[in-house]
């Protein structure tokens, strides 16, 4: 399988990365090189093989379903590019 420039632009949109026409053209070639490389997996017989979901056989540890708020709002917004009253500030999303 290979991708065209339109597909690259659609995927970039899904990934929320702005790409110029030139970027999209360059990336199309690079992505096709990688997709061409992974195509060799088609040689492998995977009939009846279960997908690997965990490399270590261990039951997932569960934690107590309790409030772990921590009262750390100030710490949490400390690194934000814009915040006010412990809220993250973003461009207006609702008219």
């Amino acid at each position: 399988m290979s991708v065209d420039t339109e597909t690259v632009k659609r995927v970039a949109r899904l990934a929320r990365i702005k790409v110029s026409e030139d970027d999209a053209t360059r990336m199309t070639g690079e992505l096709n090189a990688i997709l061409g490389f992974v195509e060799q997996l088609d040689e492998v017989n995977i009939d009846g093989v279960e997908p690997l979901t965990s490399v270590v056989e261990q039951t997932m540890k569960k934690r107590v379903d309790g409030v772990t708020d921590g009262n750390k709002a100030a710490d949490i917004v400390k690194n934000a590019p814009a915040s006010e009253d412990n809220f993250f500030m973003v461009p207006k999303v609702v008219e």
């Binding site: 949109r13 929320r16 990365i17 702005k18 949490i76 690194n79 934000a80 590019p81 461009p91 999303v93």
Partner: peptide, 18 residues
Amino acid sequence: GVRYGLRVPGKDIVEMYE
């Protein structure tokens, strides 16, 4: 661009992300 690090402005929130 909301919770930490670099933010590059855009005309709306999606363009800001992109």
